[in-house]
Amino acid sequence: MRADTAPRGRTGTVGGAGLRATARVEARADGRGGTALPVLDGEGPLALRRTRTRSGGPAARVTLVGAMSGPLGGDHLTVEATAHEGARLHIDSAAATLALPGQGGEAARYDVRISVAEGAELRWLPEQLISVRDSDLRLSTRVELAAGARLVLREEQVLGRAGEAPGRLSSRLTVCRAGSPLLDQELAFGPGAPGGWDGPAVLAGHRAVGQLVVVRPEYERSGPVAAPLGKWAVLTPLAGPAVLVTAVAPDALRVRRTLDAALRDLA
């Protein structure tokens, strides 16, 4: 098995050219006002740790700990997170994810599948995804929400490490609520991406982009109105009880500052 011989202690299931690994977490209301984690299974490079919540509140916090950098070209990683009825699950990550080139030049896949039930809340706040030169990653994040579910989700893409040309990255984010599409966005950058991605309609030379999605049933009655957040970010109410903050910047730090400030204002 390649997992035994691969560099940097790569473990997991080897299928096809690359490594396949799936991490699963399920959260349930424990009946005492807290949240239990009946499922917390990492695999290979996707290790999961239950960590202390910052507020000490009723939520369970899980941190995705990169057991190695990756994904490499050819890998297929999957994270499945489910918050059952009434549960509160906060997921973050210990470090940025680096999309790296593989040996055969194939693309890597990273699928995130999130499901949030009635009365449950899920926060998905990982660190940035950095598209390293010559890498090729297809990230797909799909969220299924019940009508009364709550969501805070942040995604940030960085085009290359400091001073480095980006690899190819396509990232699709789909949020469905009560079975209907609420948000569906795909970003595609880097060599080989459809033309104009770095031009005046799409990125205009910016090297970091971020999205923050907040879904709250109470926005059905009244929610934030559209507002530019400085020159390079905007808060937009979606066609449903949700808002999206979109930010672009020359670097990852500035995107994070903007999204953090927006999240504080929404809280």
């Binding site: 966005q185 595609a188 799409v202 990125l203 205009a204 672009v248």
Partner: peptide, 22 residues
Amino acid sequence: GVDALPAASAPLLELGAEAHAG
């Protein structure tokens, strides 16, 4: 179903449209 349709987006068109509307 409609999920099979592309969803390609352009951040600066979204930002610019809201700025322009104001």
